[in-house]
Computed example of a mutant assay.
Amino acid sequence: MANYIHVPDEAPAVPKIDVTVDERDYRSGALKLIKELRPSWKPSEVKVKFFTDGITNKLLGCYVGAVMQDVVLVRIYGNKTELLVDRENEVKSFRVLHAHRCAPRLYCTFNNGLCYEFLQGTALEPEHIRSQPVFRLIARQLAKYHAIHAHNGWVPQSDLWLKMGKYFALIPKYLKDPEQNTRLSTEVPSPQCLREELVWLQQSLSVLGSPVVLCHNDLLCKNIIYNQGAGNVKFIDYEYAGYNYQAYDIGNHFNEFAGLNEVDYSHYPDRAFQLQWLSSYLEAYKEHKGQGSEVTDGEVEVLYVQVNRFALASHFFWGLWALIQAKFSTIDFDFLG
Results as ranks from 00 to 15, higher is better:
Lys32Leu: 14
Ala311Arg: 07
Ile250Asn: 01
Leu119Asp: 01
Asn261Lys: 12
Ser44Trp: 02
Asn308Lys: 05
Met1Asp: 13
Glu82Gln: 10
Glu256Ser: 04
Lys32Gly: 05
Thr56Pro: 09
Glu179Arg: 10
Trp318Ser: 01
Glu36Phe: 09
Ala230Val: 14
Ala311Val: 09
Thr122Asn: 07
Glu262Cys: 08
Ile129Trp: 00
Met164Ser: 02
Val134Gln: 03
Leu160Glu: 01
Ile236His: 00
Cys115Lys: 07
Ala241Phe: 05
Val85Ser: 05
His149Ala: 13
Asp177Leu: 06
Asp9Glu: 15
Asn3Val: 08
Lys222Arg: 15
Leu220Trp: 03
His146Asp: 08
His149Gln: 12
Ser279Gly: 10
Gly229Leu: 13
Ile138Met: 05
Gln291Met: 12
Ala311Pro: 10
Val72Gln: 03
Lys286Ile: 09
Glu88Gly: 15
Leu31Ile: 13
Thr182Gly: 02
Glu301Asn: 15
Pro8Ala: 13
Phe254His: 03
Tyr63Gln: 08
Glu301Tyr: 07
Phe257Ala: 00
Lys42Ala: 09
Gln203Trp: 08
Gly229Asn: 15
Asn111Thr: 12
His128Val: 00
Tyr107Leu: 07
Lys35Gly: 15
Tyr248Gly: 02
Glu196Arg: 14
Asp177Asn: 15
Gln246Asn: 13
Glu82Met: 10
Asn89Asp: 15
Glu287Gly: 05
Phe328Pro: 00
Phe316Ser: 00
Ala230Ser: 11
Val96Ser: 02
Asn57Cys: 06
Leu119Asn: 04
Glu125His: 03
Phe135Gln: 01
Phe94Asn: 06
Ile250Trp: 01
Ile224Gln: 00
Pro39Asn: 06
Ile129Lys: 00
Thr20His: 14
Ser293Trp: 08
Phe328His: 11
Thr56Gln: 04
Ala326Phe: 01
Asn232Cys: 12
Val14Tyr: 05
Ala150Gly: 12
Pro211Trp: 12
Ala272Gln: 13
Ser190Thr: 15
Gln274Asn: 05
Lys58Ala: 06
His100Trp: 10
Val207Arg: 15
Trp318Val: 06
Ile138Asn: 01
Asp9Lys: 11
Asp334Gly: 11
Ser93Phe: 03
Lys234Tyr: 04
Asn3Trp: 07
Val48Tyr: 02
Gln228Val: 12
